[in-house]
Amino acid sequence: MAGISLHDLISTLIVILFLLVMFIAWLMGKNKKMPPYANPEGYERIDELMHRSSEEGKALLMGLGEGFSGLNGSLGDQTSLMVQRILMSRSVFNDQPAQSYSGDGALACISQMIVHGAYDKAMAVELFRPEHNQLTGLSGLSWMAGLLPELARSDNTGLVLAGSLRPESLIITDMAERKEIPVVAATGDISGQAALFASGAPVLLGEDYYLPAIGDINQASYQHSARVLNLFRILLAAGLLLAAFLKLSGVLP
């Protein structure tokens, strides 16, 4: 411990504090009187697409992003898998099941396992089709290239883009617009958010992407996550103000 740097010390402190806040939020969640948080708006739009898909009997497409590579985005794909799990829990018995397209091998395999699990849970494994969960490309651009022709088919009702999305994904939203297919985009990549903001699609900005909650699905997880982030945000703000004051007064090195 003698050689620990300030950088490592702060990192460790953040991890410990964050775990502590997660625990406190979990305890607070036990109080049933706590008013619930509203779902992120972008995710509510996915709910509309899910209803539309089952009413029209057309397929809802899902672009899962380019995979587990990248920095912050590496966990973005875990979120896209959560979104897929939520979608699948509702669309197993649709005339056309939701179809997903991944940009990474592990992502494609996990996604396939999730979809199979959803059919298994609904005791309808015979309806599972592996071709509905495909790898489409192995980089940001080739993933996009593989998704575009699928989007161009006529029997789609909507597109959910969730995961590590590069700014180039704007071309996907453009094609969807041309085909009059509604799109919802959710990504943790800031440059992706900036580019997609210019499109007509509802975009989940900032940290909202990491808190999927659609309708009543995933509420327990979402309420806990939102409480954790709210508490930690206040803690962080107070910490930053205090640290700035201490630095200014020369107490901090």
């Binding site: 964050f18 912050n72 875990q78 958010q193 990491y210 982030l229 962080l236």
Partner: peptide, 13 residues
């Protein structure tokens, strides 16, 4: 934005 996104990623992790 980066700090917010990092907090979200940390939570998912």
């Amino acid at each position: 934005l980066l700090i917010g996104v990092a907090l979200g990623a940390l939570l998912v992790g």
